[in-house]
Amino acid sequence: MTNFKCKLADCQKFKRIVDALKDLVSDVNIDTSATGISLQAMDSSHVALVSLMMNQEGFDYFKCEKPATIGVSIGNLSKVLKLANPEDSITLEFDEDPSCLTIIFESSTNSKSTTFNLNLLTLESENMGIPDTEYTSEITMNSNEFTKICKELGVISDTVGITTTLDYVEFSVTGDIGSGNIKINTSTGEIDQSGNPDAKGDKADVLVELSFALKYLTMFTKAAPLANEVSLQMSKDTPLVVQFEMSGLGNLFYYLAPKITDGEETDAS
């Protein structure tokens, strides 16, 4: 008996979501319920986490009899998605106690259909309880602009420092060849700054000052085609949240643990 079935008229959307996951995680548990599809997974070094929520309203067809958790290899799913043509629709379905996930691509004219049964895995995944946090600084910017910054700075250094004030946001790097920064003023509207400035540190004007591994930020930017805007939420000594809102379909969140700057010593053993 079919326990779960959903359909998206545009399989490209689904493909982009899988592309946004596959660099970061390999095998994931996907949860299905009456409200939609969700997943949460960490990279192997436990530095970054991705959390996906796809609302049932965003699908062209959605039915879930009983909540289920299925183990899927993202790498293999990505291979199967290569069978689709750009104009195809995609249908996902599985039974109660499933051993495979059925994926169907249909052309818009109904002239051709491709069906693949992807074997499922039994995975024990680590689940993170993410506390509600009020962030000191939340910046919103064009997602392509963010991709460009990460890509370009990634060539120079493996770490980027992000400093935000009420007036500007600064991305800075130090590499073997020298050091530099990209400064974007908030007044021009290219970048939007909000958050809770009351929680800022002791340095005047500076809301947050954090360092992150560009390797991970670059992986996150794979989600840029899914949303026009990206928002970064930051607080002192807290993981960065990178959010892509997929119009109507839900949200893709990435969490990234900060790097400690030289001189600081960590107690985490």
Partner: peptide, 17 residues
């Protein structure tokens, strides 16, 4: 210098059904 997420978030385990 890279911190880990488990120093910030609580971890539990979950198994596929």
């Amino acid at each position: 210098n890279q911190k880990r997420l488990d120093t910030f978030f609580k971890m539990g385990t979950k198994k596929s059904t």
